[in-house]
Simulated assay, not measured.
Amino acid sequence: MNEVVQMEESDIDKSTGRRRLSWYLLFWLVSYAIIHLVLFFIIYVMDSDFSFLSVPSVMLPLLFTFIIIVAEWRSAAVLNRSRPFIVAVALLCVLISAVPMYRLSMNEYYSWFTVSKWEQLPMKRHIMMDSLLKKHKLVGMERDEVEALLGEGEESTEIGETGAITTTYLIGSVMIDPVFLDIEYHSNRIVSAYHIRHHE
């Protein structure tokens, strides 16, 4: 009789343990999804690419998740019936992490300047500016060279009576504000300066 009672108590304890584990992992999964939703929003708004800050921000929560899962997996209280659920949570966490990582990889691709990407992706040009300015020193370039590289621009404005010309390129937007690149030409020939404006 005592053995039957002990077996029933043991089954109750195991059932309670499984329920606690399920709620614990579900809570962590929801929290994990919210964390990565916020990360994705920040990456999207800031146009972040691969860096010493962005990659660990995505990967460290995943690493912490696997530490939790391994600990639960090895726990003596976990029955075989709980293990498929743990595996499912781990796979979902990997898929959730893949979304901001994909966005980071796309921004990394956009950040490298090429003439074809400049032409085809006008709203991503602001992400390419660092790469563009590292590859090409705009100041001192002739207008024909700049137009071969960047195109003719959206508009050109004459500055006073000096013969100087400013050519404007739309290079994207930050939040809802358009971003422009203004290139000034001395005597309509040589680049004398350039400026990035975040609104008109």
Rank of each mutant, 00 (worst) to 15 (best):
H195I: 02
A33Q: 04
S187D: 13
M141F: 08
I196L: 05
G151A: 02
M128K: 03
V99A: 04
S116N: 12
D47H: 15
L95I: 12
V191P: 06
A164R: 04
G140I: 00
R83N: 01
S131T: 06
H36G: 02
L92T: 12
D182I: 02
F27Q: 06
P178K: 06
I96R: 00
Y194V: 09
E142H: 12
H36F: 06
E155I: 10
M1I: 05
R83C: 02
V99P: 00
L133R: 06
P61C: 09
R125I: 02
D177Q: 12
L149K: 03
S105G: 15
S15H: 12
L63N: 10
V94Q: 06
V38Y: 14
W112M: 08
Q6C: 03
N80D: 11
I43C: 09
L39H: 04
F41Y: 10
V174K: 15
V70C: 06
P61K: 10
G160Q: 01
S192M: 07
I165F: 00
I196R: 07
V30I: 14
I86K: 04
L21M: 14
L133Y: 03
V4N: 07
Y102H: 11
S31L: 14
P178N: 13
R189E: 13
K14R: 15
V78F: 04
F113T: 01
L25C: 14
S82C: 11
I35N: 12
S187Q: 13
C93N: 11
K135H: 06
I42A: 15
I34A: 14
L53E: 11
S173N: 13
S48I: 04
L25A: 10
R103S: 00
K124N: 13
R20V: 07
Y44G: 08
S48A: 15
F52I: 10
T114K: 08
L149P: 08
F50I: 14
F41N: 05
A71F: 12
G140A: 02
Q120V: 03
M141W: 09
I196F: 01
D47P: 02
I171W: 00
L121F: 13
L53S: 09
Y110Q: 06
M101V: 03
W112H: 14
T167Q: 04
S75T: 05
F66R: 08
V191W: 11
L26A: 13
F85K: 03
I42M: 15
L149D: 04
L104Q: 08
V94F: 10
L121V: 00
L62A: 09
E147L: 01
F85C: 03
R197G: 15
E147N: 07
M46G: 12
H199S: 11
V78G: 04
M7K: 15
L104N: 07
L150H: 00
A76T: 08
V179Q: 14
I67C: 05
R81E: 11
L121N: 04
L150I: 00
W73G: 10
E154A: 09
S31T: 07
L150A: 01
L121G: 00
I68K: 09
N80F: 10
A76C: 02
L39S: 02
M59R: 04
R125M: 01
A77Q: 12
L21D: 10
K137P: 02
S97M: 05
